[in-house]
Design a protein around this nucleic acid. Structure first.
Lengths: 173, 173
DNA sequence: AAGGCCATGTAACAAGTTACATGATTAA
DNA sequence: TTAATCATGTAACTTGTTACATGGCCTT
């Protein structure tokens, strides 16, 4: 949130939440409620300060010098470990008993969704490379693209590994 | 947890937690405390039942028929969305102001850690393919390997994108 | 200017983490 | 047989999610 505030300037909780979705949502989720709670905490710490209350008691927050210093310190300390949760791998890992047809449906839906994401990232990166040129931003989008490419490759190799699922003969009739 | 219990049989909370680490830890984390709380919930629902209390009031839980049915239903319903949190992408996204030398250190550490993981998955999968042959298990490990390959590729392309970080000239002297 | 819709914020709940307590086991 | 260590469980706290309340804005 400090990073976002430093890049987009004074914003209220709701707008900050939407920015987070757009700018870092693919590798760091944040709900609206969290944003408000955390803004309160950051204000108490003196890392952000709010302007006057506007409509619906909405206030625009901006980062303070102290907040900028804290952000830099946090970044300098280095990243925490990744959190990867792939529920579909649980489906696979424990899904030997599922009807093959159902398993195929699940995998097809998964595949479609990620195919779309992959195209999205591909286009976004191409777009960024031609127009804007913040390489730090491009780097994050590229990670998304490569991640989706890995998912696609995995899906491509699956039928060879799970013939009983993909073999039509074994489908429910 | 129901999936684990159905595969490994009666276990106490601690052992179940360790099994989770080993068997699904790479794509689904679960702390020991969560395991205990959830076992309680599952017991209340009648999805698991406990044997007699042993040492340190430890009890071995096993899955019930009702639990097995609930598991199958859950699996059939299809997987939830993925959760991906890559703190290093925040470091990149907001780290333009970091000292290049520090950024390189961070990336190097990151790279080393993932290189090790990649080798681990590669060996594990090869091992599994030759000895055991639960294809569902192999599929999950393979995902790990492909994910790490994507990370590696990303790292390989980074210097081209962020020359100011990797160019020796711009390092602190 | 009244009704419906959206923007903004809040509160209650659920999931996840950290730190601690305590009873067994092992080794000297 | 005592001290140290480990296994097991619990409690307190933090983070994340869901559902709700309410006030401003737009449309008619």
């Amino acid at each position: 949130m400090l990073g976002l505030l430093s890049q987009i300037g004074p914003t209220n909780g709701n707008a900050l939440s939407r920015s987070a979705d757009v700018l870092i949502g693919d590798f760091w989720t944040l709900t609206r409620s969290q944003v408000y709670r955390e803004l309160q905490t950051l204000e108490d710490l003196g890392y952000v300060k709010a302007g006057p209350a506007g409509a619906r008691s909405s206030r625009d927050f901006s980062i303070t010098d102290k907040g900028a210093a804290a952000l830099k310190e946090w970044l300098t300390a280095g990243p925490a470990d990744e959190v990867i949760r792939m529920p579909i791998l649980l489906t696979i890992r424990f899904g030997a008993g599922l009807a093959p047809a159902r398993m195929r449906e699940i995998l097809t839906a998964f595949s479609r969704r990620h195919q779309a994401k992959r195209e999205f990232y591909g286009e976004l990166e191409a777009d960024m490379r031609s127009t804007r040129n913040d390489p730090y931003e491009i780097a994050t989008v590229r990670f998304g693209r490569l991640f989706e490419a890995a998912v696609a490759e995995w899906l491509l190799e699956l039928p060879e590994l799970l013939p009983t699922v993909f073999n039509e003969r074994s489908a429910e009739e």
